[in-house]
Amino acid sequence: MPQTRNLIDEYGKRTDGRTIDELRPIKINVGVVKNADGSAFIEFGKNKILAAVYGPREVHPKHMAQPDRCILRCRYHMSPFSTDTRKSPAPSRREIEISKVMRESLEPSLMLEDYPRAAIDVFVEVLQADGGSRCAGISAASVALADAGINMRDIVSACAAGKVDEKIVLDINDTEDKEGGADMPVAYMPRLDQITLLQLDGTLTPEQFNKCLDKAIEGCKMVYQIQKQALMQKYFGNELELKEEQ
């Protein structure tokens, strides 16, 4: 990926006006899909992503059930209108891979052994895509799982870091992803200090890699606060307001 123009200006500002340590604005609403057992809507920069959880429920087809634990099924899907050029609604190889890494990033946080013979289904629908939709999707899905009341070890928070103009920056946006030097999405369980997703596109020296990993984890911790607040807002909203008034 050869870089044709500077993506960070002389004042240290990025194409969208952020500093290198700044996340895009994030907003999470919990319980937005009435029929689902748990759900969340995340706006992460220009990403608009809906996550809905159904389950634990009976498994169909039955032979997929496991006697000692619950299975987790995960679908990451982009709406045809979510991108600049229309995306075919059929699942692409990219979506198949993201569905897989998304499931694998959420599974370690769930106590699947508590629901033998059942299934939990997670549907992540990208309504509008910006860079970093898998991270935003994972963060929303984890909140939706908590909203569904699934027994969990921790929330999974996800955020990317990367390299732009030879600098390590937090939360790569679409332009930086396409024109920058590297993109490294990370999902992390903040209380357990465990990494559940790690991918890298682009080149990093060992020093840059270490810096990038630290920065992404910092970002995940910031996302974690927002996820926690969103859940608190839904379940203790009035009490929170009362506390603030006092």
Binding site: L72, K100, V101, R103, E104, E107, P108, M184, M189, L192, D193, Q194, I195, T196, L197, L198, Q199, L200, D201, G202, T203, L204, T205, P206, F209, L213, I217
Partner: peptide, 15 residues
Amino acid sequence: EFCAIQKGHAGSFTV
């Protein structure tokens, strides 16, 4: 230099 990474399988790693 590192040029591609993929973590896989339903488990986690420490830093």
